[in-house]
Amino acid sequence: MKNDDTSSLSHTRWNCQYHIVFTPKYRRKAIYAKLRSDIGKYIRRLCEYKGVEIVEAHAMSDHIHMLVKIPPKLALSSFMGYLKGKSSLMIFDEHVNLKYNYGSRHFWSEGYYVSTVGLNKQTVANYIRNQELDDQLADKKSIKEYKDPFTGK
C-alpha cells in the first residue's frame, strides 16, 4: 500500500497519527496566555529532536491540540513524558520568575487525551482485498524454479 501520508523506516512503512490534547496545571490561563508563542517554539523544537512531525497544532486559551505523526519505534507515553517534562524545564529556565510564583517546575497537568487518527474502514478493506492480488503479480515477475531442488524433477 503506497500512500502519500506514509513514512518509512528501514523495514517499515507507517502512518501513525495521533490527536493529543494537554493542559497547563490548574489551567493557568493568566500565565499560559503570555507564553503561548514561546511554548509553541519549545514544542516544535522538541518534536524535531525526536523525529516527530507536527501535522497540525493550535494553542488554545487553556490547552494545546496537536495532530502528530510519531514513528512506531517511539512509544506514545514516553514521547508525552519527554515532551511535557522537557518543555516544562525549558519554560522555567527561560521565564525564571515563574518558578518563584508557581514553584516545583510542574507546568503541565498530569494527564493528556489521545486518540488515533487512521485510515478509514473502506481503505483498509481495499488494501486487504488487493494485497493477495499484488503478491500474485509480484510472484509472476520473479524467477520460478521449474525443478524441485530436493528430488531433481
Score class of each variant (00 low, 15 high):
146 Y>N: 12
34 K>P: 09
90 M>T: 01
91 I>S: 01
54 I>G: 11
102 Y>T: 00
143 I>Q: 14
10 S>Y: 15
15 N>L: 11
109 S>F: 04
40 G>M: 05
138 A>K: 04
13 R>K: 09
13 R>H: 15
93 D>M: 06
144 K>H: 06
89 L>W: 15
81 G>N: 13
73 K>N: 14
102 Y>F: 14
11 H>F: 06
8 S>R: 09
54 I>H: 00
129 R>C: 14
150 F>G: 14
72 P>Q: 01
130 N>R: 06
38 D>R: 13
103 G>E: 10
61 S>F: 04
106 H>M: 04
14 W>V: 03
84 K>Y: 00
73 K>G: 14
38 D>A: 00
21 V>F: 07
40 G>C: 13
17 Q>V: 11
50 K>N: 08
148 D>G: 02
94 E>R: 12
121 K>Y: 12
46 L>M: 03
111 G>H: 05
127 Y>W: 06
50 K>W: 05
1 M>A: 10
8 S>L: 10
52 V>Q: 06
45 R>P: 07
60 M>I: 09
92 F>L: 07
145 E>S: 13
101 N>Y: 13
64 I>W: 01
76 L>I: 02
150 F>T: 03
64 I>N: 11
57 A>T: 13
100 Y>P: 07
44 R>H: 05
135 D>F: 04
63 H>K: 03
103 G>T: 07
109 S>D: 14
68 V>M: 11
21 V>L: 02
74 L>R: 02
55 V>P: 03
76 L>H: 08
53 E>K: 11
131 Q>N: 11
82 Y>T: 06
1 M>W: 06
30 A>G: 14
7 S>D: 06
65 H>C: 11
17 Q>G: 12
87 S>L: 00
28 R>D: 06
135 D>T: 03
9 L>V: 00
76 L>T: 10
108 W>A: 04
145 E>Q: 10
148 D>W: 13
60 M>N: 11
83 L>Y: 01
133 L>E: 15
42 Y>M: 08
37 S>Y: 11
64 I>Y: 00
77 S>W: 05
153 K>L: 15
108 W>E: 03
114 V>P: 08
95 H>L: 04
115 S>D: 15
32 Y>C: 09
138 A>R: 03
46 L>H: 00
117 V>Y: 00
37 S>K: 08
20 I>D: 07
27 R>H: 01
26 Y>E: 01
5 D>M: 15
31 I>M: 11
1 M>Y: 09
56 E>M: 03
106 H>Q: 00
38 D>L: 08
43 I>T: 11
136 Q>Y: 06
119 L>D: 03
8 S>H: 10
120 N>L: 11
46 L>I: 07
130 N>W: 12
129 R>Q: 05
79 F>H: 07
99 K>Q: 05
66 M>E: 05
12 T>S: 05
